[in-house]
Structures are given as structure tokens and as C-alpha cells.
């Protein structure tokens, strides 16, 4: 329960409190018309005197202000639900947009990549074909009598016996001081 004290409109403090915004304050303010305040100016003070008692009485009484009625629980729950639903809707819209853009992106990415794969496969096929066609062409040229090439003959071949494989030699670290410095640049 909110109580308000009827302020004295003559005091500056009362004026400040009157000017304080708020529905109850404004309602109270309407109870004291502006004309009344104007009448309290020094020129009219004599004519206002008969009502001073009633004002004094007002000063002493504390009235309860009409406030908003207390909300029932079901309304509060509904309000909470509404807020939750708003946030949820916002999230869902964001998720829907993200999913949509993701599907569009995946679609274009797959198309692009599959085109690239196709292109690469095509190139690989063409390279293989061209390479083998080249070998065939060279072989045909070599076989033509004009090339004057002969088949392999053992008498024209040098057979070298391969050396037995040796242990790999670890290179010894060379200190930078050991490098020979040339007295003057070479190649000029």
C-alpha cells in the first residue's frame, strides 16, 4: 500500500513534490486547482484565509493512493510465457536463417567442388591419353626405317655390376670457421 502526504503547495519543497511525475501525484495535484495556487499570492492572501483550516486538516490526514491492482498468478505466468516465446521466436528465426544460408552455401560449395573434381578428372584423363599417345608416336617414329634405329643387342650393351649398397655416411658437422674465404669475389 502506497501512502502520499498532501504537500503544502506554498512551500518550494511541496512544489517540487507536486511536480514529481507519477500517476498518483498528478491525480492529487488536480485536487488543488492552479487558481488556488495563484490566489495564494501575497495580493490575494486575505481572500484565501477562510480555507486555511481545511488545508491544515489535509496536512494531518494520510490517504492511501489508488495503485495498480495486484496481477493474478496466471497472468504473470502468461506474461513470462510471452517473453520467453518472444526470445524463443527470435532464436528460431535466427536459426532458420542460418540453416537456410548454410544449405544454400553447401549446395553451391558441393556444386563448385564437384565441377572442380570433374575438371581435374578430365585433365588427368587427357594427360594420360596424351602421354601414352606421345609414347606411341615416338615408338612409331623409332620403328620407321627412316629412323635407322636398331633393336637392342647384347654385344652393344655395357652391363655394369651394381656395387653393393654401402652404409649411409653421417656428414660430420662443419664449423663455420672451416669454410675457406675467397680473397676476392669470383665470377666478375
Amino acid at each position: 500500500m502506497v501512502y502520499a502526504v498532501k504537500p503544502d503547495p506554498q512551500t518550494p519543497a511541496a512544489r517540487r513534490s507536486i511536480s514529481t511525475p507519477g500517476p498518483s501525484a498528478r491525480m492529487r495535484q488536480t485536487a488543488v486547482p492552479r487558481t488556488a495556487r495563484r490566489r495564494n499570492s501575497p495580493a490575494e492572501r486575505s481572500t484565501a484565509r477562510p480555507s486555511e483550516r481545511s488545508i491544515a486538516r489535509l496536512h494531518s490526514t494520510v490517504t492511501s493512493l489508488p495503485t495498480q491492482p495486484r496481477l493474478p498468478l496466471w497472468l504473470k505466468v502468461l506474461g513470462g510465457l510471452q517473453q520467453g516465446a518472444t526470445v524463443g521466436t527470435g532464436c528460431l528465426v535466427a536459426a532458420a536463417l542460418a540453416t537456410y544460408s548454410w544449405t544454400v552455401y553447401i549446395d553451391s560449395a558441393v556444386t563448385r567442388t564437384s565441377r572442380q573434381l570433374d575438371r581435374l578428372e578430365s585433365q588427368a584423363q587427357q594427360m594420360t591419353s596424351a602421354n601414352e599417345a606421345l609414347k606411341q608416336s615416338i615408338a612409331e617414329q623409332a620403328e620407321s626405317p627412316a629412323a635407322k634405329l636398331q633393336d637392342f643387342k647384347t654385344s652393344d650393351t655395357i652391363f655394369l655390376t651394381p656395387e653393393p649398397s654401402r652404409e649411409p655416411v653421417e656428414p660430420s658437422p662443419v664449423s663455420p670457421l672451416a669454410t675457406v674465404e675467397m680473397p676476392h669475389p669470383l665470377g666478375y
Partner: peptide, 12 residues
């Protein structure tokens, strides 16, 4: 055989 021996690296 001449070519075979060369390809298969069979020395004389």
C-alpha cells in the same frame, strides 16, 4: 632374346 637379355639385365 637379344632384347630380353638387355631388358632383364642378364650379363654375358
Amino acid at each position: 632374346i637379344e632384347s630380353l637379355l638387355v631388358f632383364e639385365r642378364v650379363p654375358p
